[in-house]
Amino acid sequence: LDITFHVDGKNIHVHGASEEVVRIIEELIKNNARAEEIKETLERLLR
């Protein structure tokens, strides 16, 4: 699975993920999660 995301100002662009995963990533970023935390969360979800 190949998910890429980047933050452009306040806009979060996520590619290669389901809508549910996109929402989770957006929440994590809004809550100022570190990249490592986001990665760990995604790995748990995608197991």
Rank of each mutant, 00 (worst) to 15 (best):
E36D: 13
S18G: 06
I12C: 07
E43D: 13
I3K: 06
L42R: 00
R47S: 15
I29L: 11
N32R: 10
R34N: 13
L45S: 03
I3T: 03
I38M: 04
T4K: 06
D8G: 07
V22Y: 05
V14Y: 05
I12D: 00
T41F: 12
L45A: 06
K10G: 09
H6C: 13
I12G: 00
E40H: 12
K30W: 07
I3S: 01
D2G: 03
I24D: 03
A33C: 05
G16Q: 08
V7C: 10
S18T: 14
A35L: 15
N11A: 15
A17W: 02
N32A: 09
G9F: 01
H13N: 04
N11V: 15
E43Q: 10
E36R: 08
R23W: 08
L46V: 11
L46Y: 03
K39D: 08
L45V: 09
H6F: 13
E36H: 13
E20V: 09
I29H: 02
V7S: 03
N32E: 09
V21M: 12
L28N: 01
V21L: 15
N32L: 08
K30E: 08
L42P: 00
I3W: 15
H15D: 03
V14E: 00
E40T: 12
K39V: 15
I12H: 02
K10E: 15
V21R: 00
R47P: 15
I25E: 00
E19N: 10
L1C: 07
L1D: 07
E37D: 13
A17G: 03
V22T: 03
T4R: 10
A35E: 08
K39N: 10
E19P: 13
I25W: 02
N32S: 11
N11L: 14
R47T: 15
L1N: 09
I29R: 01
I3C: 09
V22N: 02
R23E: 08
V14C: 02
K10C: 07
N11F: 14
A33R: 09
T41Y: 12
K30I: 09
E27H: 12
L42K: 00
D2T: 06
E27P: 00
L1V: 15
L45R: 03
E43R: 10
T4Y: 15
E43A: 09
K10A: 14
V22F: 05
I12F: 14
L45Q: 04
E19Y: 11
T4P: 01
H13I: 10
L45T: 04
E19H: 11
N31R: 12
D8M: 02
G16N: 14
V14M: 03
H6Q: 14
V7H: 05
F5V: 15
I29D: 00
R23F: 11
V21D: 06
N31E: 08
L46G: 07
N31W: 01
G9W: 01
D2N: 07
I29V: 07
